[in-house]
């Protein structure tokens, strides 16, 4: 269920918009942030808010790379497999990440923290090999660098729990 606060915020934004459907992707991003991914419930809620049918909305949800219709981890790691990263051994990045996290490409770690996915060129080809984590780019990847990045994210993920 969406909180009333989120629902109202979305409804307000849509109300101020000449063409509500222009907001379809934005609304999906908000719901995805709330639920963790676009659940069936989220598809229905988004459709209702936008005045679309759930089918119309799902046509979009299933089309886009950065909208997830299946559960993903808190951190989605998109490893670039574009041509420049390929030349700089993107495959070794996948191997290293997957081995370290104990997952295959497309899977999520058991603690629900990380999902590893391939993605199209992320426009950082001069920093190949590169990856995105929740949209933030990391380039010139080495095993050491990957270690540091993951370690920091694990720390960040634990902190709220520790300080509670």
């Amino acid at each position: 269920m969406l909180t009333e606060e989120i629902r109202q915020k979305i409804a307000q934004e849509i109300a101020g918009c000449e063409h509500p459907r222009e907001k379809a992707v934005d609304v999906m991003y908000v719901l995805q942030r709330h639920y963790g991914y676009m659940t069936d419930e989220a598809v229905h809620e988004a459709a209702q808010l936008l005045g679309m049918t759930p089918l119309e909305l799902d046509e979009l949800a299933t089309f886009y790379d950065f909208i997830y219709r299946q559960p993903v981890g808190n951190y989605v790691i998109h490893v670039c497999d574009g041509a420049a990263c390929w030349m700089h051994h993107e495959r070794a990045v996948f191997d290293y990440l997957c081995r370290k996290l104990g997952v295959e490409i497309g899977e999520t770690t058991l603690d629900g923290l990380f999902t590893v996915l391939p993605t199209a060129c992320i426009g950082n080809c001069h920093l190949a090999p590169a990856m995105l984590i929740n949209g933030k780019c990391y380039g010139l990847l080495t095993p050491e660098k990957i270690d540091d990045i993951l370690e920091q994210l694990v720390c960040e993920a634990c902190q709220p729990v520790l300080t509670k």
């Binding site: 495959r91 191997d95 010139l140 990847l141 080495t142």
Partner: peptide, 15 residues
């Protein structure tokens, strides 16, 4: 990419 050579990578020369 210093250090990259330490990765036990499975790849051949074709990336």
């Amino acid at each position: 990419y210093p250090g990259a050579a330490n990765a036990e990578d499975k790849f051949a020369s074709c990336p």
